[in-house]
């Protein structure tokens, strides 16, 4: 029989151990960056997988987020005649929050899960052991290129989401709801600062590193056949999503204060 205190203690210990393990894996991967052979081809392949192939989902997410923001904002602002602020609100919400966070979540669902499943399968079919046996460090070969691909591609995807989201907001605000185009754009340009955009992109760097690291870590440590791979994949998605949301709060309080 386990009492609640023991359960909580066990859970905390596991959490700490996992966080420690992830930190070690991250540092190793970063250090191996400068160690030949440089895995340039693998990096390009991962950038294609994590970045290019996520474009469509990210565009759709960004577009409809921008559109719904405009719609909701319009009904809110109309109550006190503040429609002129619509463009700025949509743009600020996107570049500061929704762009990076939604991109992070969508890429987690698409690529983070796939990374965990792939590495997990490699683990349970001894392909990771085979790498070690052939004197190739799997963190260098598998983890390092994936984390870098995440770090490099997430900001680009976030920019795409921001841009298409603002276009979506423009479409709804100006074309459907007939707000004056000049005012929509002018307020947006006046109120959105470069630092807003940059801070949003800093976040996306961090999310890119987080979701690839967690996917790699969970896959790398998978055990117990197909079921274990499934568990690793689920955990990777859940933990990455939570980390992105918690990380977003922490980063917001650090960056915008």
């Amino acid at each position: 029989m386990e009492n609640p205190v023991e359960l909580l203690g066990g859970f905390s210990l596991r959490l700490l151990r996992e966080m420690g393990g992830m930190a070690v894996m991250f540092v190793q991967a970063m250090l191996y960056t400068f160690k030949p052979p440089f895995r340039f081809r693998l990096l390009l392949k991962q950038m294609e997988f994590i970045g290019v192939k996520s474009t469509l989902v990210v565009l759709l997410t960004g577009l409809f987020s921008g559109m719904v923001l405009a719609l909701q904002g319009y009904y809110g602002f109309r109550k006190f005649g503040g429609e002129s602020l619509l463009g700025a609100t949509v743009a600020l919400s996107l570049v500061r929050e929704l762009g990076p966070v939604l991109t992070g979540l969508m890429v987690t669902a698409r690529a983070g899960s796939a990374i965990a499943a792939e590495l997990g399968t490699m683990r349970v079919t001894e392909q990771i052991d085979a790498l070690w046996a052939m004197a190739v460090n799997p963190v260098h070969y598998l983890v390092m290129p994936r984390i870098w691909a995440g770090i490099l591609m997430l900001p680009l995807l976030t920019i795409l989401a921001d841009v298409i989201g603002i276009l979506g907001g423009y479409f709804v605000g100006v074309i459907l709801l007939k707000i004056n185009a000049g005012i929509f754009v002018a307020k947006m340009r006046a109120l959105v600062e470069l630092s807003d955009i940059l801070n949003g992109l800093y976040k996306s760097f961090v999310f890119g590193a987080l979701l690839t690291l967690i996917g790699c870590y969970k896959g790398y440590h998978a055990r117990g056949g197909a079921e274990g791979v499934g568990r690793a994949t689920t955990e990777a998605v859940v933990i990455s999503s939570i980390s992105i949301l918690v990380g977003d709060y922490i980063l917001t309080s650090l960056l915008f204060s």
Binding site: T121, Q127, A130, A133
Partner: peptide, 11 residues
């Protein structure tokens, strides 16, 4: 060099 029981080919 090592040959794994299940092959462990990179799929």
């Amino acid at each position: 060099g090592m040959l794994f029981q299940e092959g462990a080919l990179f799929d």
